[in-house]
Computed example of a mutant assay.
Amino acid sequence: MTSTSGPLADSVRIAWPAEAAAVAELQRRVWDSELAADVAEALLAEVSTADMTLAWEQAISRPPQARYRVLVAVADARVVGFATTVPGQDPDADEAADGEVGEFAVDPPARHRGHGSRLLNACADTLRADGFRQARWWVGEANEELRGFLAAAGWVPDGSSREIGSDDESVRLSQIRLHTDLSVE
């Protein structure tokens, strides 16, 4: 019997616990490709793939908050991107109105194939479905590719910035906060 179904359509959906290892490995590849070599090396040395897999499995199966979501972009039944959506985490956030994209990554070999756009739209739809009216996103100040992608989708800087990094301050990353309106016109 011949199957008439073709390849699975590229899509975005809620992550499954069994995909935690794929998400962890993808996150490590993105860190390695996007961060400065010394920063990537320090971060990757600080946490093992097994520990990251366990953390993602817990985040997917037992989210830390009621409106915490892990989304995955899938192509040919393979995870090619992931994102998290959460209530706004900043002290100036209105927990009822402000959602946040906490993580967002697309596997470098899978970029420029629509996965990022599908993932971004799914983040907005998920935040909207969770009742948020505005979305925020902390992005690397030096990540011009992501900032340009988000600007084209209507995200704009709100004037906030921060520096994050390791406790020993050996790793420092400068970020700016973007926001967008989630209301449907």
Rank of each mutant, 00 (worst) to 15 (best):
R62T: 15
R62D: 12
R62M: 12
P63T: 10
P64Y: 02
P64V: 13
P64L: 08
A66K: 10
R67H: 11
R67W: 04
Y68H: 12
R69H: 13
V70P: 04
V70F: 00
L71N: 04
V72E: 01
V72H: 01
A73D: 03
A73R: 04
A73G: 14
V74A: 06
V74T: 05
D76F: 00
A77L: 03
A77I: 01
R78L: 07
V79S: 10
V79T: 13
V79Q: 06
V80M: 05
V80S: 13
G81Q: 02
G81Y: 00
F82Y: 15
F82W: 09
F82N: 05
A83S: 15
T84W: 02
T85W: 01
V86N: 10
V86E: 13
V86D: 06
V86Y: 00
V86M: 07
V86R: 14
P87E: 11
G88P: 10
G88L: 00
G88A: 02
G88K: 01
G88C: 03
G88S: 06
Q89E: 06
D90L: 08
D90E: 14
D90G: 05
P91G: 06
P91N: 01
P91Q: 01
D92H: 08
D92C: 09
D92R: 01
A93W: 00
A93G: 15
D94C: 06
A96K: 11
A96C: 04
A96D: 13
A97K: 13
G99E: 02
G99D: 02
G99S: 07
E100D: 08
V101Q: 02
V101N: 01
V101S: 01
E103Q: 14
E103H: 10
F104H: 09
F104W: 07
F104Y: 13
F104G: 12
A105G: 12
A105M: 12
A105N: 14
A105L: 02
V106T: 04
V106H: 03
P108L: 09
P108G: 10
P109F: 04
P109H: 04
A110L: 06
R111A: 08
R111C: 11
R111E: 15
R111Q: 15
H112L: 09
R113T: 13
G114V: 10
H115R: 08
S117Q: 15
S117I: 05
S117L: 15
R118C: 02
L119P: 11
L120T: 00
L120G: 03
A122S: 10
A122T: 11
C123H: 06
A124S: 13
D125S: 11
D125T: 09
D125L: 14
D125Q: 14
D125C: 07
D125I: 02
T126V: 02
T126Q: 10
L127R: 05
A129N: 07
G131C: 09
G131T: 01
G131V: 00
F132A: 02
F132I: 03
R133Y: 00
R133W: 00
R133N: 03
Q134Y: 01
A135I: 00
R136L: 14
W137F: 13
V139W: 09
V139H: 09
G140D: 12
G140Y: 10
G140W: 08
E141F: 14
E141N: 11
E141A: 15
A142F: 07
A142K: 12
A142N: 07
A142Y: 04
A142L: 09
N143G: 12
E144V: 08
E145K: 12
E145L: 06
